[in-house]
């Protein structure tokens, strides 16, 4: 166990987030971007546990987050009665994948969902009943949910295995991007100006942040600048995709709560950033 400056900073951020969340719970108000704090807090809980107690436990905190997100997605989509076995398979693939992260078996982690879960879920769907109509959509919807909420979010866990401050950098950068998007949205700035704002305002901060944190994340300075520039672009892509999903699933923008699109709304920026940042680091630095 190390108790150096980086660990203490992590703890301070975590305690601050907890404080905000307790305040939010007590005041029951809807402050600006309050729900993002909850999900950031869950991420940080995992990081803090991994840093101070054990990685094997911290990773399962992320698994729970992944489970909650997947559960919300499955609650939102329209499933047939006979898809239930496929959905059970989808839920069971969460421990399956996170176990491979825990034991650092990269090869198996990277194929666990795209090969085994993607093959099992359709089989289970077809074994669930004899009705053929709607099979394609069911299989597609289940596999897609698995991909976004388990596989993509799972990459955060593998980053955590490399170095605690890498996912911390990711979560903080996403926080900056989401906050900017929220502010621009509230100010009714849209169109090209809005897009430019969403890309370049956070970019200033993420580059600065990732460069400043470079001694703790262990990413060399050139790469950390590139990563800092990349993250807002990927985050905007994820937000765009997530917004379309939300609209199709009938999620009302001003009526979000957990179970009705809030988790999807808060995790949408991770869809692209987490896997790409992970593979960038793995390719260039490992």
């Amino acid at each position: 166990m190390r108790y150096d400056l980086s660990a203490i900073t992590l703890l301070v951020v975590f305690i601050a987030l907890s404080g905000f969340n307790i305040y939010r719970m007590l005041s029951r108000g809807k402050q600006l971007w309050s729900s993002n704090l909850v999900y950031s807090w869950i991420f940080f809980l995992g990081f803090v546990v991994a840093e101070f107690y054990s990685f094997s436990v911290g990773i399962w905190v992320l698994a729970v987050l992944s489970f909650i997100a997947l559960r919300e997605y499955f609650s939102l989509i329209d499933i047939r009665l006979q898809d239930r076995w496929g959905i059970l398979g989808a839920y069971l693939s969460i421990p399956f994948m996170f176990y491979f992260i825990q034991i650092d078996w990269y090869g198996m982690f990277i194929i666990s969902i795209p090969v085994y879960a993607f093959l099992t879920a359709p089989l289970l769907v077809t074994l669930g009943g004899r009705e053929t109509a709607g099979t394609v959509f069911s299989v597609g919807a289940i596999d897609f949910g698995l991909f976004l909420f388990v596989y993509c979010i799972g990459h955060v866990g593998y980053l955590l295995l490399y170095e605690t401050w890498m996912p911390v950098l990711l979560v903080l950068s996403i926080g900056i991007c989401d906050l900017t998007t929220r502010i621009l949205h509230n100010r009714m700035i849209s169109g090209w100006l809005g897009l430019g704002g969403r890309l370049f305002i956070p970019m200033l901060f993420t580059i600065l942040l990732s460069r400043l944190l470079s001694p703790w994340t262990g990413i060399p300075s050139t790469h950390s600048v590139i990563l800092g520039a990349m993250l807002p672009i990927l985050a905007v892509m994820g937000q765009h995709t997530g917004d379309f999903l939300k609209a199709d699933l009938g999620v009302e923008e001003d009526f979000l709560f957990a179970g009705k699109g809030q988790i999807l709304d808060n995790l949408k920026s991770f869809f692209f950033t987490a896997p790409v940042m992970f593979h960038y680091i793995r390719y260039f630095l490992k």
Partner: peptide
């Protein structure tokens, strides 16, 4: 809203879904 997905009458396998 939700229990009809969690444990419908014809099924004996409860699955996690958000309830409202």
């Amino acid at each position: 809203s939700g229990p009809e997905k969690v444990l419908p009458k014809s099924s004996s396998l409860p699955l996690p879904f958000c309830n409202l």
